[in-house]
Amino acid sequence: MGMASFNDQIIDAFRANDGVVGQHWEGKTLVLLHHVGRRSGKEYVTPLVAAPDGAAYIVCASLGGAPDDPQWVANLESADGPATIELGPATFAVEYEVVRPDDPRWADLYSIWRDYWPDAREYEKKTDRKFPVVRLQVPPSA
């Protein structure tokens, strides 16, 4: 099964159950990140494990331990303005910051996500790449 169809199944389950996907993700928060391809101009939706960090969430560009960063990171970095996420039954715009491993804050933010998502340690074994993280700032009204 390709990544797209696997993601589509997660997205369908998320939307059918107000953000609760269950199975492998039981008890974990997922967000659906909407991003626009920087070359294609096409909108994509990527389901991501989102570790709570105060009024924000940390998502990680692990791509299951693949050797290269997923496209959505570069798409966010080249975008202008807030990103759109689906969290539970709500959809809203969030301010975000991409934090790469050379940033002094990276280790703390990555450890929040790593402690939240048990599979992180498996992903780390598959590659020497350090995974960028993104802090999604959820608006106070959400």
Score class of each variant (00 low, 15 high):
M1S: 15
M1P: 09
M1N: 12
G2E: 15
S5P: 03
S5M: 14
F6V: 13
Q9K: 13
Q9F: 07
I10G: 07
D12Y: 00
A13R: 15
A13Y: 01
F14P: 11
F14W: 05
R15S: 01
N17I: 00
D18Y: 08
G19I: 12
V20L: 05
V20W: 09
V21D: 07
V21T: 12
G22C: 10
W25V: 08
E26V: 07
E26G: 03
G27H: 12
V36F: 03
R38P: 01
R39Q: 12
R39W: 03
G41I: 03
G41N: 01
G41K: 06
K42L: 14
K42M: 14
E43H: 06
Y44Q: 08
V45Y: 06
V45T: 15
T46L: 03
V49A: 04
A50M: 05
A51E: 00
P52R: 10
D53F: 12
D53E: 13
D53L: 14
Y57G: 01
I58V: 15
V59C: 06
C60L: 01
S62W: 00
A66N: 02
P67W: 00
P67F: 00
P67L: 04
D68H: 11
D68N: 11
D68C: 02
D68E: 13
D69F: 03
P70L: 05
P70G: 08
W72M: 07
V73I: 15
V73S: 02
V73R: 05
V73T: 14
A74L: 14
A74S: 12
N75C: 08
L76Q: 00
L76H: 01
E77K: 02
A79E: 07
D80H: 08
G81P: 10
P82N: 11
P82H: 10
A83K: 14
A83M: 11
E86L: 04
L87F: 04
L87I: 04
P89E: 11
P89R: 15
P89N: 12
A90D: 15
T91N: 03
T91F: 07
F92C: 11
V94A: 08
V94G: 00
E95H: 14
E95D: 15
E95N: 13
E95W: 00
Y96P: 01
E97T: 15
E97W: 10
V98H: 07
V99W: 09
V99Q: 10
D102S: 14
D102V: 10
D103R: 07
D103C: 06
P104D: 10
P104C: 08
W106P: 02
W106M: 09
W106F: 05
W106D: 04
A107T: 13
A107E: 14
D108P: 01
L109G: 11
L109N: 10
Y110E: 07
S111V: 10
I112A: 12
I112H: 03
W113K: 04
W113M: 05
Y116I: 02
P118Y: 05
D119C: 03
A120S: 15
R121G: 11
R121D: 15
R121Q: 13
E122C: 04
K126F: 01
T127S: 02
T127W: 01
K130W: 02
P132D: 05
V134N: 07
L136R: 02
L136P: 04
Q137G: 00
V138R: 00
P139H: 07
P140Q: 06
S141G: 10
S141P: 00
